[in-house]
């Protein structure tokens, strides 16, 4: 099985924790504890009053990076995007991937809906169809989210022999699948927010 090696994104280094892709409830709790512990260590308010300006600036700057990293890494979507972006940057041969495909039934429904929206805007039946499409989109995104989540839980990151420091690796097949799922998920989310902004569909 071929492995893709990539540099561990800076956010992990700012956070000061080993690389992880998925967060279990326990590791999420550990992440929160880590944040509090590190904040207590770095927060300028806990520095001695006579600390130098340089020391203050140093603490302030490290804590700012830590807080920004924490937000990126605690959120599953932004964490995956960050890692995928790094993998692509470090492995240009991966290319940009295929155009995300949405399920055929959903695509058909979308085109029909667009047609009737053009013909009978404001029609009760059209609006009902819009609502129903919107909710199937929601169900589909949720399904994808679960799949992505399960896949990332399954990822076992390896640091094979001879790899550069601060690098890790993931199986190629796995990365391709993860990226496809995440692209589809993003596409659906965009479609949904597009609909919401155009037609004021209730959430």
């Amino acid at each position: 099985m071929s492995l893709l090696s990539f540099k561990i994104p800076q956010a992990y280094l700012d956070l000061g924790m080993p690389f992880f892709l998925a967060l279990s409830p326990e590791s999420e709790e550990a992440l929160k504890r880590h944040l509090v512990r590190e904040t207590r260590r770095l927060h300028p308010d806990l520095l001695a009053l006579d600390a130098s300006d340089e020391a203050r600036e140093e603490h302030e700057s490290r804590l700012a990076a830590l807080n920004a990293a924490y937000l990126k890494l605690r959120d599953e979507d932004s964490r995956l995007d960050l890692v995928l972006e790094q993998i692509v940057a470090d492995n240009p041969e991966l290319g940009s991937g295929e155009k995300p495909q949405i399920p055929a039934a959903l695509a058909l429904e979308y085109f029909e809906l667009q047609e009737s929206l053009e013909e009978n805007p404001g029609d009760a039946a059209t609006l009902a169809a819009l609502e129903s499409f919107h909710s199937s989109l929601r169900i589909e995104t949720e399904k994808l989210r679960r799949e992505v989540s399960e896949l990332s839980q399954a990822a076992a990151c390896k640091s094979p022999e001879g790899m550069e420091p601060a690098h890790t690796s993931l199986p190629l097949a796995y990365v391709v699948k993860l990226r496809d799922l995440r692209d589809r998920q993003r596409y659906l989310v965009r479609l949904r927010s597009d609909l919401e902004s155009k037609f004021q569909v209730s959430r």
Partner: peptide, 12 residues
């Protein structure tokens, strides 16, 4: 750039 409820200090 910086989302509300980010811990202080923070950066982007």
């Amino acid at each position: 750039l910086i989302h509300r409820n980010s811990g202080l200090p923070t950066e982007a």
